[in-house]
Amino acid sequence: MLSEGEVVFTPEELERYDRQIRIPEFGIEAQVRLKRKRALIIGVGGLGSIISIYLTRAGVGKLLLIDRDKVSITDLNRQILYTHEDVGKYKVKVAIKKLSEMNPYVDVDGVRDEVNENNVDDYVREADIVIDGLDSFKTRLIVNDSCVRFKRPFIHGAVNGFNGQVMTIMPLKGPCLRCLIPKEPPEEKHIVPVIGVTPAIIGTIEALEAIKIMTGLGEPLVGYLLVVNGLHGYFRKFKIARKPNCPACGEKR
């Protein structure tokens, strides 16, 4: 595992990260911490495109992507990893190629799979942080529960239309996704309408939260739900309390 050994940068690699290393709070220390981390992104659609691009460019050590789908033409208004000629190809395959081209210093890997109760622990156990690029609360809650079991930070994000939300989960230190949503709402019967800018905003905030946690900088959105209203141009932060009787992270679990 990367965190065991010494982190070595080539001169070119250091040059690649020059502008962020110059941020006083960031520096070479944060760059080293980032390179030691393994991030897991579940779902490489609208949110996952943005999250994976920014974590790759920031220089995370290892990135694992999971998605079972192929690129469809209806994805192209928002899933900016893919282009017209990628329609019909598996997302994970295209994503690995494009991200590796963006930054050959990041170890990008992917699995064509659907996350469920049976396989979730195998993926979460191997990761230092898990980031939500999913489109269903059923799967989000499965991932949340596994992140609580293995005490892995989990960044939640979701979108609809011009609106979205972000919540950062540090298991047992703050509320988890089940403290907010104890049980999944009924599956959305209709196709979720969305314009590309919305997952771009939400995905970028998720990537920022992931970078903060991996580097130990700033104050992550733990105990808060950040709600973004694109059309009216405001961000609002709501407090979320930890639920003592939460089925995932509560005392009686």
Binding site: N163, E188, P199
Partner: peptide, 10 residues
Amino acid sequence: IDIMPLPSGG
């Protein structure tokens, strides 16, 4: 009181 729909897309 704020009443918000829960977004689910990704």
